[in-house]
Design a binder for these strands. Sequence first.
DNA 1: TTATAGATACTGAACGGTAGGTATGTTATG
DNA 2: CATAACATACCTACCGTTCAGTATCTATAA
Lengths: 209, 209
Amino acid sequence: MSGKMTTQKRRIRQSPKMPAELRREQLLKAANDLFVKKGYRATTLDEIAQKAGLTKGAIYFHFKNKESILGELVKTVSQAYEKGINTYLGKNHTPVELFQLLLEIDSKIPMPEARRNPGLLSEIMKLPRIRTQMRDAFNKSVDKLSDALDSRFGRTVKQRRSLVIMLIAYLNGLKFVSTYHSESVDFEKQTELFLKLFQATYGDNPGEK
Amino acid sequence: MSGKMTTQKRRIRQSPKMPAELRREQLLKAANDLFVKKGYRATTLDEIAQKAGLTKGAIYFHFKNKESILGELVKTVSQAYEKGINTYLGKNHTPVELFQLLLEIDSKIPMPEARRNPGLLSEIMKLPRIRTQMRDAFNKSVDKLSDALDSRFGRTVKQRRSLVIMLIAYLNGLKFVSTYHSESVDFEKQTELFLKLFQATYGDNPGEK
DNA sequence: TTATAGATACTGAACGGTAGGTATGTTATG
DNA sequence: CATAACATACCTACCGTTCAGTATCTATAA
């Protein structure tokens, strides 16, 4: 000991060392992919590590624990979503415009598979910290969207919130059925149908309500 | 060692024995309640047993394994749903009628909390056998509903299926948001809003499309 | 330029808890 | 008293977490 075990080659195959920053992102990507495929709880740290070419122990150098990996991912999405709203959202929008805007943002921010995965969303909503994190983000965006909805479509904030939530609800519902019954459901067609409905009611002039 | 921690009395407090049939239902109910509250995987057999006043080992007298408990529950719902459709479904319905009919059926068949729990649904959809079981039921009911939709609302079966799926999608979406954002979402109000939209477009006379 | 000390990134193994499943003994009831 | 309906103890596998130690990189000084 003390000295070297000269002749004995301890052939430890260590992965090429990377700057922590890079490795973190690599791990986050691996985790995201696996969460999408298998769900949060069903994904093991071994799998994440392996996918990044590491061993489990190394993860704890980069993250506090498993949940913190998820937390980072959620944070990334929330921030991108908020940024998208701030960028694209104008004033006095019609519901149809808002719906299209939501689709637009949805198509631009990262981790689409994860965000459109109701199973994953439901699962992580059971983790108290994550839940809080996501609910805050949800309320924040609903507020902003409601503000940006033209007042013709709702005198009170409550009414406008209600409408906004309806838009989001339908989007979520579509994601849900198209995830689990993709053979039977044509996402774009359903969207078109929905917009046509809205157009008929709210398009040119708002309803009297 | 060898056996007992001597002084410890073997206090065997056996639950009153029940006919297997009854106990099965009791276990099923317990399982259902717990699945709703905690999810499928997060619910342990110990908890189910305890809730029914038994111990884990006893479960294996009544069921083959954990998944078979879930299978029974799914089967029960599927059958009730199908029966509901057969009972209430007429001919040449409007979309609004169908939507109300779905609500009606939904309110009459058992295990409402479980069925309205997207997280639970997503979770169990990952179990291959359960998934098959549920998808078959879904397609079956979509077919029947599409048949019962008046042909004014879609010349081809495909078009009618599309509309039916849209109704179901919105229902699911509503369940989703009202589950996770119940403070912000008024289920009935959202339903009313949606129906009003449909009424405006499809209510009196169908769209030309 | 080179030796080296310290920081950084990672391994491997062990630990502890959990939970599904099983083997086998025990009790209640007809 | 036979058997259906339990209880108890145990096994096994899995998985998150910890940690001592190892390898690799980098900065500094000689």
